[in-house]
């Protein structure tokens, strides 16, 4: 784990959330979520690298973290697909992709 890894992980997480909070386009919002997701991968890799671990050098980058990261990628894609499907339907119903146009709907 290096200082750069620290900064990059924290920055990516925050900037992705900033994108979600201030977005004017639902597709942009879902993609910003993926940017935040990237920060979790950076953290996992940073934690798993050779330099970060105690004891004698191991044969491979930590396989537990590798397995976690690789299944996480596939799961993230299908979740993004589900969210984008919702965005498609919203667009069909309202003709707009602006998240702020979705406020104040009648109950």
């Amino acid at each position: 784990m290096t200082a750069l890894g620290t900064i990059v992980a924290a920055w990516l997480f925050a900037i992705g959330l900033y994108g979600v909070v201030t977005s004017r386009n639902l597709v942009h919002l879902v993609v910003s979520l993926s940017v935040s997701q990237a920060s979790t991968y950076v953290l996992l890799l940073a934690v798993g690298t050779r330099a970060a671990r105690p004891g004698p050098p191991a044969r491979a980058v930590d396989p537990v973290l590798q397995a976690l990261a690789s299944t996480d990628v596939v799961v993230a894609v299908v979740i993004a697909a589900l969210l984008l499907a919702l965005v498609v339907q919203v667009h069909k119903r309202t003709g707009s992709l602006d998240p702020d146009a979705l406020r104040r709907l009648p109950e």
Partner: peptide
């Protein structure tokens, strides 16, 4: 995160991942 930077001696237990590897 700064607590993970090299400098602080890590715990004695090897990681589960390394044991499995």
């Amino acid at each position: 995160f700064a607590g993970l930077l090299p400098g602080r001696p890590a715990g004695p237990t090897p990681r589960v991942g390394d044991l499995l590897a």
